[in-house]
Design a protein around this nucleic acid. Structure first.
Length: 213
DNA sequence: CGTTGGATTGGCT
DNA sequence: GCCAATCCAACGC
């Protein structure tokens, strides 16, 4: 894996890392040698001060242990009885902060992602945190993986977005803390998760419906 | 296009 | 026992 983001990239507050993750590339090399990759277009910050965070008030449990570990590792959790979601651990060891990967634009291994996802619509392969995990086959086994050193899983530099194309929105799916604009998206991207796409200020291109007859 | 409910495990109080 | 950092299909307009 070339041009990987270094440890120092992740050793910053989640609110700083989240917008900087946009345009970066999540890469997984499967045991078969096939390469999967996708460009991140939506990410949410979670910190200890946040009632919606698993690490709220510094509470450590077996589940969220990884969030309190060294930055640059992957925190994968299971939810709603059937889905996994993946976060990148940020900040310093001992502090519970992370950034949830919410949506991405598929680049390589699209055929494999489509097979795992059960759809060929590129737009829907990684448009949601659980969809990313399904497309990349991320589950319990990947919880705690070191994105800086793991030979098969990491984040490449890609191309960071200019501030002008980053929009800050309220996060998706949270109850308390829902008003905090801690969700960051690439403005106008076609690959955002459903809820973010609807909340996004981007004017829908409103493709005129072709005449039907 | 918008809203609604079901699926289904396990983490935590 | 309650309910979650979600997804999808099925409706209703």
């Amino acid at each position: 894996m070339r041009g990987r983001l270094p440890r120092a990239f992740f050793a910053r507050p989640a609110l700083e890392v989240a917008p900087d993750l946009l345009g970066r590339v999540l890469v997984r090399i499967m045991p078969s040698g096939r390469r999967l990759s996708a460009r991140i277009v939506e990410a949410e910050a979670y910190e200890e001060s946040d009632p919606a965070s698993h690490s709220f008030r510094g509470r450590r449990t077996p589940r969220n242990e990884v969030m309190f570990g060294a930055p640059g590792h992957l925190y994968v959790y299971f939810t709603y009885g059937l889905h996994f979601c993946a976060n990148v651990v940020t900040g310093r060891a001992g502090e519970g902060s992370a950034v949830l990967l919410r949506a991405a634009e598929p680049l390589e291994g699209i055929g494999l992602m489509a097979r795992r996802r059960g759809t060929t619509d590129a737009r829907l392969l990684c448009a949601g945190p659980a969809r990313i995990c399904q497309a990349f086959a991320l589950g319990r086994a990947e919880n705690g993986a070191d994105l800086v050193r793991d030979p098969g899983l990491g984040l490449e530099e890609g191309r960071p977005l200019p501030a002008s194309s980053v929009a800050a929105l309220p996060r998706v799916g949270t109850r308390e803390g829902a008003e905090l604009p801690w969700a960051f998206v690439e403005a106008g991207s076609r690959f955002l998760s459903g809820p973010a796409a609807r909340r996004s200020v981007s004017p829908s291109p409103r493709t005129p419906t072709p005449p039907r007859r």
